[in-house]
Design a protein around this nucleic acid. Structure first.
Lengths: 347, 347
DNA sequence: GGGCATCCTTGACACGATTCAGTTCTCAGG
DNA sequence: CCTGAGAACTGAATCGTGTCAAGGATGCCC
């Protein structure tokens, strides 16, 4: 009984002895159809193995029941946790999700945005590679709603859900300062990522408050926020003459911090005795690291859920929707990697 | 100049002073159009900000340029690495990918497969929750090509790309046996996952070869392959009377192993001195763990690339395609977590 | 039995792109 | 000047579904 791949609403209609319109009603407005007819149609659908053609449906309706999610890095647990939050909220609302990974690459981001445009998705959740607000507003002009994810919108016209990255940077560095460190390396990049710039700005702020200037906070730039980039940064860190060397490192995310930790350990530098280490995101692996990692925690799943809820609201009732910029507060989680600091003369 | 959201091929045609057919040709068979006309049409497309409607195109063509990928757990780095391999291969072939996360849940898997059917994707890469071959063959009857991922097909009719999980289990346990362990706990589940059963079977095999029976390999069942489930398993492990306690633990994946490691450490059990630990997958975080984890390495990215290449072949030239079951070999990576074993009397 | 309201069902058109048979144009060759 | 071939373009039919005005059936009431 293997049905051919071309079972359309027409076949169902003729099998059930009704018109195509009635079949369509059974699918979309069952209340309009008598229960007897409905049962007959459903039986026919079952027997023929009919599956509605999404393309035709979408073409007719003019819109799809699909949303897009574009993240910076699928391999970063921060984003997969965030994606889970999104998926849960979207799924229960009966919408489908197209999950895209820009990998921090502008070209790929553009390609995926084009794909989403062609698919006529109703909305997009995105952590853009750089300040893409112009491009995103253009998406909106096409009727595609946009919510920024893990990125604060400067534009009051755009919903966004983010965590206060400046504050996060402040918390991290203030903690290291209190532990007596006076020379702290910032490891992060690329600089085009707003998260990186904001966390750095917060770090600078904390230094300034402590009466130190930026020369006490050297920035080790990385090409990506990955474990490999962290290992590399550790090597560069150790390349500096010992007397200039920072006694603590603040990393723009946990993957970098884990990489730095590996690099340091390999060179027999002890953490935290020789160099203290603070990461960012508090991914699950941070607590399980060789030296449990002090990190700045963000409400990952909640971030995703909130953003998805905002997007659903905007999609479903655009008229009543008021754009808002939700900002969560980060929280410092202190663990082994920054305890028992090296005592050092100030200045 | 904000274009309304309804720019169709018709608008482009009238702006460029040609027929709709010509615009279509510019998009799909540029060679059929004179270069002057082509330039005019492209200019019109640009000015109007026209983006082809994927739904209409697909409806007419009968097929989409889209593939689906269904994995067991996005939060597991093994699967995101695998996804990266898939994405690279698919992307360079100019196809789009819909990335789905079944989360080990049959219902969600079904929902996503329905979604992919409605989208009329050309093919699906899937790590099924259980033995879904019947359902998958039905997909194929609809003209949707299927390749199994990280799962060997028993059905010669289905392509699959996998790693020899039995062998992996053997390697892991044989290593522990050589180190002198005689009572080894297997932590893994749910049992419906073939990966879990195969790794267990390999473990049993190694025990048998060593003249031990299955009572020396107690199975601690877990509801999922996650860090949290691992922590929980550690608690149960320690609940057993000390004289019955296993001296080594083999986990069905690294997330579990990291969880077990956390649980043991919290109870002041030393790894590997008190209990040795071996994981599976060799995710990046395994090497960076509190105690660097011995693990069974799988060629993750290559797995994804190979599977994607097979699927592309099947999609593009179904006639010439011969189904094949590719099986990679796993490799044991020994690290701290299983070194310097507890010396124990055999038996 | 006629009038009327209610409830179901029908059938034709529309969505936007592709396809292909057919038309127009150009130009070389006789 | 005519013919034929080939290139370039046109226009209408088509894919599978949703929508909606209109039609049919049924039951109720006077």
């Amino acid at each position: 009984m293997r049905e051919s791949s071309v079972v359309s609403i027409r076949d169902v209609a003729s099998r059930a002895g009704v018109s195509m319109g009635t079949v369509s009603n059974v699918l979309n407005q069952p209340d309009l159809v008598s229960s007897a007819t409905r049962a007959r149609v459903l039986a026919a659908i079952d027997e023929l193995g009919f599956v509605p053609n999404h393309a035709a449906r979408q073409l007719r309706r003019g819109r799809s029941r699909t949303l897009g999610l574009v993240v910076l890095d699928v391999a970063n647990p921060f984003f997969t946790d965030l994606a889970k939050g999104v998926e849960d909220t979207i799924g229960t609302a009966g919408m489908a999700l197209i999950f895209c990974n820009s990998d921090g690459d502008q070209t790929r981001e553009d390609a995926y945005l084009d794909l989403l445009k062609e698919q006529r998705v109703q909305g997009v959740l995105i952590t853009p590679v750089d300040d893409a607000s112009a491009r995103l507003l253009r998406l909106r002009d096409r009727g595609i709603h946009v919510v920024l994810l893990d990125r604060r919108s400067r534009n009051a016209d755009l919903c966004s859900v983010s965590v206060d990255d400046r504050l996060g940077g402040e918390l991290a560095v203030r903690h290291l300062l209190e532990a007596g460190h006076r020379r702290i390396a910032f490891v992060g990049g690329p600089g085009r990522l707003e998260q990186v710039r904001d966390r750095h700005a917060g770090a600078v702020q904390a230094m300034t408050e402590a009466g130190l200037d930026e020369t006490s906070l050297p920035w080790l730039d990385t090409p990506a926020l990955t474990v490999a980039a962290g290992r590399d940064a550790a090597a560069r860190l150790l390349g500096a003459p010992r007397e200039n060397r920072a006694t603590a490192v603040f990393c723009a995310n946990d993957l970098l911090a884990l990489g730095v930790l590996q690099g340091l350990t390999q060179q027999r530098i002890r953490v935290p005795e020789d160099i203290a280490l603070v990461g960012y995101d508090d991914i699950d692996f941070a607590a399980a690291a060789a030296v449990p990692l002090t990190s700045v925690r963000q409400p990952r799943q909640r971030l995703g859920q909130t953003a998805a809820a905002l997007l659903l609201g905007e999609v479903n009732e655009p008229a009543e929707h008021r754009h808002q910029q939700v900002v969560f507060e980060p929280e410092l989680v202190v663990r082994e990697s920054s305890r028992r600091p090296t005592a050092q003369p100030a200045g």
